[in-house]
Design a protein around this nucleic acid. Structure first.
Lengths: 230, 230
DNA sequence: ATTTCTTAGTGTATTTTTTACACTTTATAG
DNA sequence: CTATAAAGTGTAAAAAATACACTAAGAAAT
């Protein structure tokens, strides 16, 4: 490795693809409207520059908080985008992250130099600034792939949820119908759900049982290379 | 996103974890010995700075070629490492790649500022410079994970190989014994191997048939979300 | 109070996939 | 021509995945 420090440096940013589920179990992405050029007024992924005194993951969490008010969520590195012409002004390398949040817990707010922050359905995104379309589509594929073999879907739901909500979530993200009985027996056989012995309230039909994800048990099983495939 | 260009910039490097298989089907990694401080004389992953006029992937391929002579191989992004204290001198962000090569095809040579380049068995690595131990272990896990559901193992073998060689490769990387008959029927059922109707030569026992990976067919099947699980 | 509406909840038989397992064949070397 | 070493091959049993339809429970409307 050649460490001579004479090289001009690229700028490095982090961008976050924030996924959420709305009331109708539709998959949404949080975008911010750019307040400044280039791509002024265009929608973009929240993100910003990495400080020299913070790790990339810290920067991603900080930017997310600054630009949208979202804090303490599932946030995982996605991919690093480094084509030469990604930004019209300067060479920019972007480390992309994706976040999964329970929409209900947050009221998102535009802050710093974002004019506006808004949830968009993944099926009808506006044209995005820079190469954010591409970053988004990599994130969507990653979410889909990961959901199949790791129980990360819970991050998108409120902490108490019904099995039907969970099934809808899988159906939405995987873009396929699932059989109710098979889904239930499979998910319950994993022993990752705690039956709260509590009922859904405020529905005008038979209420469903509420469950909670058992994170502790998940971490134990994870050690043992347990299989979480759906 | 805050594009004001007043931020000090980190340096950005690429490092490559180069995997190969030796004659005894042992998994090896290519390391270079550092010619300069810090970590002078220590073994490290080949890599170097990203130029402003090249993409990250291009930089990875270029550094690999410069430092080891290896060219035109399977090279895929692994992960980006951005802790603050990774390098004692400066803030460095490293985009790591991993490469799979057929050792027989190359005679590796140390070049530029590397003193030496050498293959090490993954089970007995020397202590590495910087956080390269960590990068290596992420790469090893990735290779293991990916081999299970994508036919990338062929990249480590010569273009003509026997089923036993292929099985040993899987056993080595996955760190588990596989059943000969089950492995063969599974792999052949995928129809990704071309029977060359040619025999292994130079062995003092019954020679095995030689096969070749059918890349074209793989790309066709990939479109159709075909399942390549072992 | 009864009916209607809507979603929750449940079991089994069939098919498919995975696993476990051992002997014969074919070449080279001595 | 015998010994050695790895190649090559099929089947039965177990496990997992799939397909499938009715009853139960509550709220709302009459």
């Amino acid at each position: 490795m050649s460490y001579t420090y004479k090289y001009p440096k690229p700028s490095v940013t982090v961008d976050c693809v924030v996924f959420g589920l709305d009331d109708a179990q539709k998959l949404k992405v949080l975008l911010i409207q750019r307040g400044i050029a280039p791509y002024q007024n265009k929608w973009a992924l929240p993100g910003g520059f990495i400080g020299l005194d913070e790790s990339i993951a810290t920067a991603a969490a900080r930017e997310l908080k600054e630009e949208t008010g979202i804090d303490k969520v599932f946030l995982e590195q996605l991919y690093t985008f480094g084509e030469v012409d990604r930004d019209p002004r300067d060479r920019i390398i972007t480390v992309a992250y994706y976040a999964l949040i329970n929409i209900g817990e947050y009221v998102v707010k535009a802050r710093t130099d974002a004019k506006n922050a808004k949830w968009f359905s993944v099926e009808e995104l506006p044209p995005l600034a820079f190469d954010h379309d591409r970053i988004f589509s990599v994130a969507k594929e990653r979410l889909k792939g990961k959901l199949r073999y790791q129980p990360i879907g819970f991050e998108l739901l409120p902490s108490k949820f019904t099995l039907t909500q969970l099934q809808r979530l899988y159906e939405t993200v995987l873009e396929q119908k699932l059989d109710k009985r098979n889904f239930r027996s499979k998910i319950l056989k994993m022993k990752l759900l705690v039956d709260l012995e509590e009922m859904q309230a405020g529905v005008s039909h038979r209420p469903a049982k509420l469950y909670q994800f058992d994170k502790k048990r998940y971490q134990e099983l994870e050690q043992k290379e347990f299989n979480f495939e759906i």
